[in-house]
Design a protein around this nucleic acid. Sequence first.
DNA 1: CGATGTGTATCACTACACTCATACACATGG
DNA 2: CCATGTGTATGAGTGTAGTGATACACATCG
Lengths: 131, 131
Amino acid sequence: MSRPEPIFVVHASSGVPIYRQLIDQVEALVAGGRLCPGDTLPSVRQVAVALGVNPMTVSKAWSRLEADGVLERDRGKGMVVATARDAGSLADRRAQVRPLVDQAVVRGLQLGLTPAQLLAVVKSSLEEKSP
Amino acid sequence: MSRPEPIFVVHASSGVPIYRQLIDQVEALVAGGRLCPGDTLPSVRQVAVALGVNPMTVSKAWSRLEADGVLERDRGKGMVVATARDAGSLADRRAQVRPLVDQAVVRGLQLGLTPAQLLAVVKSSLEEKSP
DNA sequence: CGATGTGTATCACTACACTCATACACATGG
DNA sequence: CCATGTGTATGAGTGTAGTGATACACATCG
C-alpha cells in the first residue's frame, strides 16, 4: 500500500444509507478516472475501521458494486476495479447525470423560473463547486 | 356532484406507497389542466371506499399536497385546488432549486465532466422539458 | 501446516415508513 | 340543536431496510 488509497467519507445522519454513500463514491471515483481498472480497493476492514462502521456494511456496498460490474473479486486479495470500464465514455457519463439534471430542471420550471434563470443558478453552483 | 370526478387508480403491490401514487396522480391532473383552481376533490372517504383503502391514507396524501401548496383546505367542504400558487420571491425560488442543482453539479464533476459539458446537459434538458 | 489476509453467510436487532381502526373537531343545512 | 358532511389527531400493527456481531470459507505466504 505504498500509494495513497482513496479516502471515503460518510455522514451517518444524512438520511442516506452508508452503503449507498460508499457505492456512489466508488462509482464517482471510477467514472472520474481516479480509480483505474486493476486498482485494488482498500479492504473491507480497513474502510470499516476508518469509518467506524461494521465490515458487513462495507461488504454489502462492494458486493453491490460487483453485481453492477464496477468491481471484480480476487479471492484472497480483495476487490479490484473491473477492466470492462468503457461505461466511462462521455456519452455514458452524460447519461448518468441526466436524471439528476432533469430533476432539477423540472423542479425549477415548476417553480416558474425561466430557462435563463435556471442556467444562472447552475453557473452559480458550478463556480462554487468547481476548483 | 353533477360533473364527473377524477378517478384514481392505485396498485397496492407496485412497491410504490399508496399515498404517493395519489399525490402523483393529483399533481399530474393539476399540471395537465384536468383539475383547475377552485375545483374540489372527491372526499377522503369517497376515494377511500372506491380504492378499498383507509381514509387516513388518502388524508395523508392530501395533507402533503396541501403542504406543497397544491391544495387548500375548506373546513367542512373539502380540499380545493389552490389558485396559481405563488412560490415566493425569485430569490426564494432559486434557493429552493439550489440543492437539486448542487446535487447534479457535484455528480457531474465527480464523473469528470467539464463545466461546459455540464452546461450542455442542462441546456439539453431544458430544451426537452420547457415548452 | 499455521498465521494472516481477503470477503461473506447467517441471524438478531433497530429504526422507520406505511397502513389502518378508532375517536375526535369543525362546518353546513334542516 | 341535531344529522351529516368535511378532514385529522392519536396510537397500534406490520413489513422492511439498514446495520451490526459472530463465525465461517477461501487464498496467500512463511
